[in-house]
Structure formats: C-alpha cells, structure tokens
C-alpha cells in the first residue's frame, strides 16, 4: 500500500508548516530509512523539551530514524525524561503507568495481531532504567519469559535523573549522586545477561555514539522481534546534569564508557534461531543486489 501517509486536501491551508513538511518530506514508507536521511528529510521527531546537549535526545533521533516501518509501529513509553519526547514524535505512542510498559506492549501486540492479521505491526517499548529495571522489572521479565514478540529499549542513564538523582538498579557500584550521598553498595544489575537467560533472542548493550551502529542494532532488533522472539537493547544515555558535565561533553562521556574493558563496550547476543533468520535476510538482500546489477 503506497502513499498511506497523505493529507486531506480540505485541511492543507490550515495545517501547521511542520505537519506539511512531515507529510511531504518525512521518511514514512521509505524502505532504506536510516541516519543518512538526516539534514535532507524531515525527521519524525520535533522540538522536544530535553536539556541542551542531552545524549538521550541524540539516541532518540537515531532510533526514530532507524525503525523499519514507522507508519505501522506503536511505541510504548513510560514515566521519565523520555515522556517529555513522546508527545513530539510522529509515531503512534502510548504513555503507560510507571513500570508496566511491557505489560501494555504485550496486550497491544496481541490485539494488533488479531485486528490486523495480514499487516505487519511492530511494537517498541522505550523506557528509562528506572521503569525497566527497578519499578517494572516484574513486567519486563514476565514478557520475556512469555516470549512476547516486541522490542524493549532501555535508556540507561544509571540513575533517576528526572527527580534529581536517586540511586537506581543500573547505577554503578560506589557512584555518588545528588540524592544518593552514601554511594551505591551493590553492583550494577546485569540486565543484558538476565535478558539472555530469560529468553530474549537478541540482546545488545551499547552507547549512542555511533549512528550507524544504533541503526544496525535497532533494525535487527525490530526485525527479529517481528519474526523470532523478544529483543532487548540497553543504550547508555548519560544524564550530563547529574554526572556534572557540560552540555557539549555528553558525546565524549559516551565514547569513554564504550572503550574496551569499560561497562558499555558494545556486546550483542544473538540466539541460533535469530542468527539463522538474519542469515536468511542477508542472503535475500544479496540476491536482490545481484538481480539489480544484472
């Protein structure tokens, strides 16, 4: 179905310019979406209210540019800094109660499968580390145990940034925050390993410092979630205010944290089923390329 994103001719003269831009030069229904559209196409995210230089907004931009079919995607968000951005994105989204985002996504995915049996519908959960690991851990894990087919993305900033810097499960051991002056006594929760053991078919841990890598991981995760099973991505998006950095230092902070031996060095786990699915996709792409050149 081509050209599904259209504007009613009766409304063209009263719609805001941003909306018209999105319809005319947005990247809906483009088969090769990616960060390369930046600068020339209208992005599916508009002026948000995150802080200047926030690494989370870099990650958000890269994710919105990479999701494979935005016109058929529903995103589920949760309370936190991400909920400041969700009203500004051009993809259907649901704001869940704090912590139950994976439970909502479960119901949504099943309902969409019943309502639209012959159309691909992706569900993507995007929440902070508080919602994913502390308050919503029950819902997160149960959805993986049940092998629910959607992608869970965790924006890991290692504390509760929105409320002033309280200790979270993903905070590193010994870290001092504004509202956690004693320092954390326990290790950072190893959620990627837990996800792997809980039944996720694809797990990745990374930072948002390389757009091409974010694009590749998001596309793989969404496609695997569509066909094989649950997927989990943990992206380091440091809160520059809470770790005491300037607005222009967020990128360097991410690069430092992904150096070899550091806690956010890129790692991914692909289950054998997911690997054979990816191999199939790669072969298909190769065949298409050969067919196009001959």
């Amino acid at each position: 179905m081509a050209n599904r994103i259209q504007i009613n001719k009766e409304f063209v003269d009263i719609m805001p310019q941003d909306y018209l831009d999105l319809v005319e030069s947005g990247t809906f229904e483009s088969p090769n979406r990616g960060w390369k559209d930046f600068g020339t196409a209208t992005e599916l995210i508009a002026e948000h209210s995150l802080c200047a230089g926030c690494p989370e907004s870099i990650a958000f931009r890269h994710i919105m540019a990479s999701i494979p079919n935005p016109e058929d995607t529903v995103m589920v968000g949760s309370t936190g800094c991400t909920s400041l951005v969700f009203p500004m994105i051009a993809v259907h989204n649901i704001h869940s109660l704090f912590g139950n985002q994976n439970a909502i996504a479960t119901g949504l995915k099943r309902a969409l499968a019943v309502r639209f049996p012959d159309r691909i519908k992706d569900v993507i959960v995007l929440a902070g580390d508080g919602a994913t690991v502390d308050i919503g851990l029950d819902m997160t894990l149960q959805s993986w145990f049940r092998k629910e087919r959607f992608t869970t993305i965790c924006f890991d900033n290692e504390l509760y940034a929105n409320t002033g810097g309280q200790e979270s499960g993903l905070m590193q051991k010994g870290f001092l925050a504004k509202m956690a002056p004693v320092g954390k006594r326990f290790d950072k929760v190893r959620l990627p390993e837990i996800a792997r053991e809980s039944g996720c078919d694809y797990v990745a841990i990374m930072t948002a410092s390389k757009p091409s890598l974010v694009e590749k991981v998001i596309k793989q995760a969404v496609l695997i979630a569509r066909e094989v099973g649950p997927t989990y991505i943990q992206i380091y998006t440091p809160c520059i205010l809470e770790i005491g950095k300037q607005s222009m230092e967020g990128l360097q902070e991410m690069r430092t944290s992904e150096a070899p031996g550091e806690r956010f060095k890129f790692r991914e786990f692909i289950s054998p089923e997911a690997q054979s699915f990816l191999d199939g996709l790669a072969e298909k792409k190769k065949a298409e390329k050969i067919a196009a050149t001959t």
Binding site: W35, L50, S57, I58, P211
Partner: peptide, 11 residues
C-alpha cells in the same frame, strides 16, 4: 555530516 549526525535537536 558530523554536525548533522550528532546534533541532539531534530531538524
């Protein structure tokens, strides 16, 4: 495309 890639603000 460095600045376009890393700018945190969309568009």
């Amino acid at each position: 495309r460095l600045c376009i890639m890393y700018c945190p603000e969309a568009n």
